[in-house]
Write a protein that binds this DNA or RNA. Sequence first.
DNA 1: ATCCATGCAAACCCTTTGCAGTCCA
DNA 2: TGGACTGCAAAGGGTTTGCATGGAT
Lengths: 154, 154
Amino acid sequence: MISSTAKHKGHDHPTPASAAVVDDIVAQLAHQGYRDTEPRRLVIAAAAAQERPFTAEELCTALPCVGRATVYRGLRLLVETDQVCRVLLEDRELRYQLSHQGHHHHMLCAICGASADLIDCDVEDILRAAADRSGFRMSGHWLEVYGRCGECSD
Amino acid sequence: MISSTAKHKGHDHPTPASAAVVDDIVAQLAHQGYRDTEPRRLVIAAAAAQERPFTAEELCTALPCVGRATVYRGLRLLVETDQVCRVLLEDRELRYQLSHQGHHHHMLCAICGASADLIDCDVEDILRAAADRSGFRMSGHWLEVYGRCGECSD
DNA sequence: ATCCATGCAAACCCTTTGCAGTCCA
DNA sequence: TGGACTGCAAAGGGTTTGCATGGAT
């Protein structure tokens, strides 16, 4: 089933909740020595406002007052600090979305672009065992699952 | 244009085995209506000569007598006809390698770049079940496993 | 007062495309 | 012969970088 935080349905405007998300992320960045700046907050807020995995370009469009390089740099910082994770569509288009707790994989709807976290999906051990059989020591993996969400399956 | 006797480098001379591979692929392409041309054969031979997953650029370098566009077009054709499959490194660099039978996944060595097919690794069912739990109907997936091969683990 | 962060534009990388000429079937 | 294929160069998109300015700590 779907956990309470699995489906990414956001809001068009900053809500108290998303403002809290921004503050939280800014605080975590500050704790790692990164400065609290207006453009950076705008990037985080825009990312938090997206309902679906988004592209860097979409963020640039949503933030005409923020330089393109700043958006890209902000996004990269967020990925490096695990605040945002990258998802890859079937056509290899790169998108982003706010991270959730722990390691997990995404199920992406090819129709509407929605994303859901795959839960109770422990492929790690299976992959590691298979890697062992090939004489490899697994250190990581990249997995994306594609299909149709419930609403688009009808 | 390209002289059939023009040989460039040492790693260009085909072994009997790779020559057979080239003939086989050319034959399969011919069966699908694609022509047998010298540049295309060179691309296939160069791909078959690679020991590890390779980039399009590496093929261009290995084939200075073949136009870049031809290399890219040839590679795309080979992917579309399932003669070659694409693999994605952790840094999202795109590489290629000759296809093997059936659907499978790759284990990539982060040190030497070697690739091994994961055997007895049936994650399909697990993913589909997890997708179901999220209300999704799975239609495909992308999976790459990273780590160290036996030789690089020591 | 430091430097980190920003903005702009140009640079970059990788891949595709337009077009004219070439060659296989 | 005709249509597929090729080579060149130029365009394309997505992302990064150089550099001078601005701002957080």
